[in-house]
Simulated scan of single mutants.
Amino acid sequence: MLNALLTIALTAGFATAQPAVGDVCEITDQRLEELSGLASDGDRWFAVNDSDNGAIEVHVLDRTCEITDTITAATNPYDVEDLALASDGTLWLADTGDNNKSRETVALHAVGQDGSTRIHRLTYPDGKHDAEALLLDGNGTPYIVTKEPLGSALVYRPTTALSDTAPTPLEQVARVSISGTDTPGGPLQSSVMTRVVTGAAMSKDGKVAALRTYTDAYLFPVPDGDLAKALEIDPVRIPLPNEPQGESITFDPDDTLLSASEFGTQGATRSTIRAVPQATTLAAPTTTTPPPPQADTATASDHPATPEDRPLWPALGAGAAALALIALALRRSRRRRSP
């Protein structure tokens, strides 16, 4: 518990890029006012709404943000939070939302563009988690990234091939530590809101992964295909300011990074899809060589307090504040969830 709480104050910052972020078009269709997941094949965008309509609906948008088609499937999901497009055209929906930590299983829905669907149920090894981010690595293996108000985001992948008939166990393979930032946006003006993971995307060649928070995107180079290892390397941060509830992110096949927000809250009536051209070039593999160990001849009084030496109360206070802010944001949400 102590380590998780200390992460809020002690996680180091990342390198920050300040590329031009341009507006592409505006979504005004109310069917996507809770836009939660976005994917691209280069000609069309695929989008899911974070709501309970009793069936799977993936909306197809043209490059002007107009809905031109809707792919439907009879499966009734619980809480779809993200979307990824596989190389074979299958749309993978992350039915992994669990605000109340009440689900015994979460699910991935593999949806064909003809509306065919397969459901794969999953179980965590260590209790229940809320998650809003899905990545498919270069081999098509799914990775789920949790939404943690305290401590590091946790990364899970299946231990075996996905099953249609029984839940597949997940294993934790990485942790991602994200610091709070001063980027404006999100449902509340709080550093807590700037550090929870709300979406994810993988470049077409599988060489760059992106995680987003309500306010920023983080790019992780994956030069050797090992996504779990890559997510524990310091990323490059790209601010995405002034998105009311930014949860969507994807790459176009030409490596443009696209982001968008929910709307219908805080007086917003539309969501702007924004683009960072050639974003993958901003993520470069880096290696850090730790300094050689040095003999410690000083006395205890010569050293500043370490995290273990510091009083627990400030950390506990930060943790309580974080939980209170997250709870308030959830109460403000208009989402309807039923087990």
Rank of each mutant, 00 (worst) to 15 (best):
P223L: 07
G206K: 12
R195C: 05
N139D: 15
D234Q: 14
G180L: 04
P241C: 06
A230W: 11
G151I: 15
V192C: 13
A230E: 10
P184G: 07
G186Y: 02
Y218K: 04
F220K: 03
Y143T: 00
L170R: 00
R157H: 08
P187G: 01
G199K: 00
P169D: 07
G225Y: 04
G206W: 02
G115F: 03
V197S: 07
S191K: 12
I178V: 07
V196I: 14
G138W: 03
P125R: 12
P149Q: 13
H120F: 15
T123Y: 00
Y124A: 12
S177N: 13
L154S: 14
Y143I: 00
G115V: 03
T117E: 15
A131I: 11
Y214W: 03
A174H: 09
G127C: 08
P167W: 06
H120S: 13
K128P: 06
Y214P: 05
P244S: 12
Y214I: 07
R195M: 07
E148K: 10
V155S: 15
V155G: 15
V222E: 04
P244W: 03
L211N: 03
I238H: 07
T194Q: 13
V192T: 15
H129A: 06
T181N: 10
L240N: 09
G185C: 09
D182L: 08
R118N: 13
L150E: 08
Y214V: 08
L122S: 07
G185K: 00
G185A: 06
Q189C: 08
T181G: 09
G225I: 00
R121N: 10
K128R: 15
S179L: 12
N139W: 06
S177M: 09
A153G: 12
R237F: 04
L188M: 13
I178W: 01
P167K: 04
E171L: 11
L154E: 15
R118L: 08
N242R: 11
T194M: 10
A200M: 02
S116A: 14
G180I: 00
D226I: 12
A153P: 11
A210P: 03
L162I: 06
G199E: 02
D137G: 09
P187D: 02
I238C: 14
A230C: 10
S190F: 01
T194S: 15
V155K: 10
I233W: 15
D216G: 06
P235C: 09
T146A: 03
G151E: 11
L211I: 01
M202D: 06
L122C: 06
D126N: 12
P244C: 08
V155E: 15
V192H: 14
T215G: 04
